[in-house]
Simulated scan of single mutants.
Amino acid sequence: MNEKLKLGIPKGSLESATIALFKRSGWNINVNGRSYFPEINDDAIDCAICRAQEMSIYVENETLDAALTGKDWIAENSSDVHVITDLVYSKVSSRPAKWVIAVAYDSPVKNIEDLEGKKISTELVKYTKKYFKERNINVTVEFSWGATEAKIVSGLADAIVEVTETGSTIKAHGLRIIHEMMQTNTQLIANHKAWENKFKREKIEQIALLLKGALLAEKLVGLKMNVPKERLEKIVSLLPSLNAPTVSSLYQSTWFSVETVAHVNIIRDLIPELLKNGAEGIIEYPLNKVI
């Protein structure tokens, strides 16, 4: 096969989570040591590992056909790319991350207007400058190479703009969040030329479909149980499902096999309720993909 899709995988904090997501979707990505070009079990794809901060630039200039990167870095780079789909996943939780403004816990600053004339440290420089300019708040924004939280403690900045999922790290550094600037999540993107190419577009759509299916499956489990005929209607009324539970009769019996899919958050309450109402032999099993 001559034509291949050049796919970017984010390096850094999302690298392991992304490779694990692809594995659940059917692709094994093997990163060999320091190589920036990992192997993948798909002859139609060539992979490259790049920093998420730069990924949208490489997609826009057609170095890469498609990639996964943060919505925040697309905004930071003002990249003209085609967003295929949102993919909410991370190394910590299944919630979107957010960029917040934080100050020292004992700072007199209560809101962003109080930052007039102050110095802000962040890695998200361009977006932060634009954000404050649109609100007519004059601030000095400086780039941070890392350890951004420490800039306030050391007196190098009055506030920081930092990404967080739970806010726990910011609080642990003695800081206080005063404002949320934006929510961000991983996005699958492509350049316009690749999207207009029939082969590459179909491959990108395949990746999007299976990645979303794997993410949805993380939140769901399968349930299977045996139910006596006289309790069937009650059990079915208790069960959630994508459409309706699957019900089939057991061989030469007045019992039925009932199968459904349910959200993981309700299982601990649902299973005892099913037992109480006559279900037996309940099996819970994980799902790889839900399409």
Rank of each mutant, 00 (worst) to 15 (best):
S16M: 01
A20T: 11
R231S: 05
S154D: 07
K126F: 09
K118E: 15
E123H: 12
Q252V: 03
G70W: 07
V83W: 15
L250K: 04
L270G: 07
V92T: 11
A279Q: 12
G278W: 00
I204A: 09
I120T: 10
M181G: 02
V139K: 02
S16P: 05
A97P: 04
I9S: 02
K193F: 00
Y251P: 08
E196D: 14
E280Y: 01
F256T: 00
P272T: 09
V125M: 04
N136G: 09
V88R: 05
P245N: 04
K126A: 13
H192Y: 12
I266K: 00
K203R: 10
E280K: 02
T18E: 06
G213K: 02
K219W: 01
D80H: 09
W99E: 06
Y89A: 00
T148I: 06
Q183Y: 04
P10C: 13
Y131D: 05
Y251T: 06
D65S: 15
E284P: 07
M1W: 06
I29W: 07
T246V: 00
A214R: 14
G12W: 02
G8W: 02
K119T: 10
P38W: 11
A190R: 06
T184N: 10
K129D: 14
M182V: 14
A262G: 02
A194I: 13
D114Q: 06
N243Y: 13
K151F: 07
R34V: 06
E60L: 05
S253W: 12
L242E: 07
Y89H: 01
K224E: 09
P108W: 13
I152K: 00
I267E: 12
I49R: 10
Y127H: 10
L87I: 09
K276L: 15
L5N: 02
T164M: 11
S248F: 05
K6A: 06
L275S: 11
R201A: 01
I160Y: 01
S35Q: 13
K193P: 06
G278H: 03
S154G: 05
L270R: 09
T148H: 11
E142V: 07
I235A: 00
L287G: 02
H82A: 11
N2C: 12
E54D: 10
N185E: 08
W145R: 14
V261D: 00
R34T: 12
V221C: 01
T69R: 14
D158I: 04
K171R: 10
L64F: 15
T164P: 14
V141W: 02
L239S: 00
K171V: 15
L175S: 04
S56W: 11
A20Q: 03
L87G: 13
I101A: 08
S241K: 01
Y36N: 03
H173I: 00
Q206M: 13
A279R: 03
V100A: 06
